[in-house]
Design a protein around this nucleic acid. Structure first.
Lengths: 207, 207
DNA sequence: TGTACATCAGTGAACGCGCGTTCACTGATGTAC
DNA sequence: TGTACATCAGTGAACGCGCGTTCACTGATGTAC
């Protein structure tokens, strides 16, 4: 019998590199979260098993299970903001920038549906959102959107006069589409790109 | 010492009325769900405690815990559809009807945030949605919206030509606002009524 | 260069808990005769 | 009208499980002298 199991043996971190485990723990939590489709599966013991360590080892890095989830959410906000900013690189046309940003937002939600859900549709958030760090990240992401609307208006491509209001309108629509699409695959959705373009142009008041 | 505790003693159902417990179980599940803010708290034992029965008694009415949640979701769809239809009663103006329906939808989401979340933003749904009954209810609710857009267009109050597309756009926006608002109270929301009216008039293409 | 030792990165066993589920049962109530 | 009995609406005790968390520990590794 040929052994197929690749009994992943974890190599213990070298002295002074113990903090590396912290990142591995968060990565494992994300993995379990997205694979299982529910944050209930992200138990302290499941995370430990996934990383290949004993359960108590986690306590050197996180005070409790909730802190791991909070770290996942914080990482999510950083990742989303990065994705948004990256999507704008090299683009000059304000409408193109707006569309690119919105698409990047939806892509993030589609690629990390469970993390996304945790970020925006879970009361656990209360904990992280009170934490200034998570809040600032979320604000930064939203600011990208407000800037996009303002830019389009200033350069004569949109009739928007209330940038904040219109940015909120777009955010609300994007978020709605993101969560509904990932949870209601059976619904008769119209063409995705048409829907998104209509949402953006009407809510950003493109002319 | 004056006894304050109202040790709720449940009266056993009379013969032939055992099925009444089924409704009590669902009601208890909804109560726990909305009070706790998370469906994780809706355990079989917690529901039994809330109703005032022993845990095994539930098995006479539901095969397992998941079936209770499914019943909560089904009830939710019925409740939402009823609320939508009721909101239209006595209204004739198509734009008024559209607004009333949308407001009723948001009110439902605000009044039953956790049930709402379970209905639209949870993969547990997969089970219920495959079930024709739940599906039909959801379709009926959405049909109310499509009819609203069509009616407005036919009566010259909207420029919509693709009723389904525009109804989806409105649904997406309403859903987005509903979940974001209930989970992000700290966000600087614009005036609620202004936001909602703008979403509806732009997405329904009111003229 | 050699060695004693402090420190670091973890481990293994154990705990109490609430959970879903099973099993054999109980006692009130309606019904057949 | 009286009574034996079937049925119905539940109960109580028990199970095995995975969980979060604690505790005392181990063994490799870098460092001071």
């Amino acid at each position: 019998v040929i052994s197929v199991s690749t009994t992943e043996v974890r190599v213990r971190n070298r002295r002074g590199e113990g903090a590396r485990l912290k990142d591995e723990i968060v990565a494992a939590a994300v993995d379990i979260l997205e694979t299982s489709g529910s944050h209930e599966a992200v138990t302290l013991r499941a995370v430990a098993r996934h990383v290949g360590i004993s359960a108590p080892s986690i306590y050197a890095h996180f005070p409790d299970r909730e802190a791991i989830i909070a770290a996942v959410i914080r990482d999510g906000f950083v990742g989303l903001t990065d994705a948004l900013l990256e999507s704008l690189e090299g683009l000059d046309d304000p409408v193109e920038r707006l569309r690119a940003g919105c698409r990047a937002y939806l892509r993030y939600g589609q690629d990390h549906p469970q993390v996304y859900q945790l970020m925006f549709a879970n009361p656990t958030l209360a904990t992280v959102k009170t934490d200034p760090a998570g809040f600032v990240e979320g604000d930064e992401a939203f600011a990208v959107l407000v800037e996009g609307v303002r830019d389009a208006a200033v350069r004569g491509r949109s009739d928007s006069t209330d940038y904040h209001l219109d940015a909120v309108a777009i955010w609300v629509a994007l978020h709605g589409y993101s969560t509904l699409a990932s949870n209601n695959a059976g619904f008769p959705w119209p063409d995705r790109d048409v829907l998104i373009d209509e949402l953006i142009s009407r809510l950003a008041r493109l002319n």
